[in-house]
Amino acid sequence: MSLPTRDDIIDDMAFFDDWEQRYQYIIDLGKSISRIDENEKTDENVVKGCQSKVWLISNLDDGILYFKADSDAVIINGLLALVMVVFNNKTPKDILAVDIDEYFKQLDLERHITPSRGNGLKAIVAKIQAIANSYAN
């Protein structure tokens, strides 16, 4: 199952009028991202700084960066899906041009992107940006 576009998600999220619908939607989105195989869930691929376990792997092919992310917590998986929508299948240059704070603001999910221990999303975004940066020059 493929992910909706950024604009679709922003429209969908604006439509919900309670937290249950919003988070059910996020949980369901999380189910649609491609999982990481168990044998690739190595310590090397763990993103540090998350309360739940998060793994991230990347692959550059013909100038395009492909990511796979996975977590043992379903809400984080949903948030990972939101992140994948704007970062996956892009050139490093395009990835670095994404204003992630603005995107989460549009989704009314800023709290997930604020720096705080136990909230891993910031760490995941930083790792994606660092990977993109390493290929950008």
Partner: peptide, 20 residues
């Protein structure tokens, strides 16, 4: 259920617990 998810969804309902 992951404890982080439980903590998060309880927080949406105004309930503060610790998870982890």
């Amino acid at each position: 259920c992951h404890s982080a998810d439980i903590g998060f969804l309880l927080d949406q309902q105004g309930i503060a617990i610790r998870s982890g």
